[in-house]
């Protein structure tokens, strides 16, 4: 496995330079090889979601460096897929087919991603607002997969889902190609343990543990 993500001395302060400045991550070092399945766990306010947004290139480090391959992560956003907890916010098009088309014009890639998430070609015509929260999340994931990202980041993918939706999503994620590099941010290790080969624990923005899910 070759190194894909490299974080060195990364600190993130939200609203830096304002009276509302809030440290979220502190002096974090992290290496993520190609094909690794990383679980990020921690309590509320531990910096999990900030790490997800950082790894997705949506925010840059306040100090330190963050690289995807040879490029700073913020310059490599097009190579990273992010699915957030409020998935509806990222499904901007009215139908499934239009949403997938926003990420790739290749119909074969669209159908592959859709089937990988447990849907069929008939679902392309469905309206986003007619889908359940769990289905919306899987469509959000399918859209990100359709763009063939080098890194896939999922922020609390199981949050707000009922048991059948969790099982469906877990199966879909376990069926991802072995070469896919995936980061799953979760506060519930029990539900997501099967998704990862490595787990890190954050506490107050610091790395507090690094090991295997078992």
């Amino acid at each position: 496995m070759t190194g894909l993500v490299r974080l060195r001395g990364v600190s993130v302060v939200h609203n830096a330079g304002t009276p509302w400045a809030q440290p979220a991550l502190s002096d974090l070092d992290l290496d993520l090889p190609q094909g690794e399945r990383l679980l990020v766990v921690g309590t509320n306010g531990s910096g999990k979601s900030t790490l997800a947004w950082l790894l997705a290139g949506m925010i840059g480090p306040t100090t330190g460096t963050a690289f995807l391959g040879d490029a700073p992560i913020v310059d490599a956003r097009s190579e990273i897929g992010l699915v957030v907890q409020q998935t509806r916010l990222q499904l901007l098009r009215p139908t499934v087919s239009e949403e997938l088309a926003a990420f790739t014009s290749d119909v074969v890639h669209q159908l592959e991603a859709l089937e990988r998430m447990g849907f069929s070609g008939a679902d392309l015509r469905r309206r986003i607002d007619d889908l359940s929260v769990g289905q919306q999340r899987r469509i959000g994931l399918a859209a990100q997969l359709a763009r063939r990202p080098r890194l896939l980041v999922l922020d609390e993918p199981m949050a707000g889902l009922d048991r059948p939706s969790r099982v469906a999503l877990t199966e879909a994620l376990r069926d991802l190609p072995a070469t896919a590099t995936v980061v799953v941010v979760t506060h519930d290790l029990e539900d997501s343990a099967a998704l990862g080969t490595r787990v890190i624990r954050l506490e107050g923005g610091h790395l507090a543990g690094d090991g295997s899910p078992s």
Binding site: A56, R77, S78, Q90, L92, F103, S105, R147
Partner: peptide
């Protein structure tokens, strides 16, 4: 802010800027 940030990371937006603004 979240929706705008996610929109800015979408790949095919420049050709359909107006449609994207309406969708957003």
């Amino acid at each position: 802010s979240t929706a705008t940030a996610l929109w800015s990371s979408r790949p095919t937006k420049s050709k359909r800027a107006l449609v994207d603004v309406v969708d957003l």
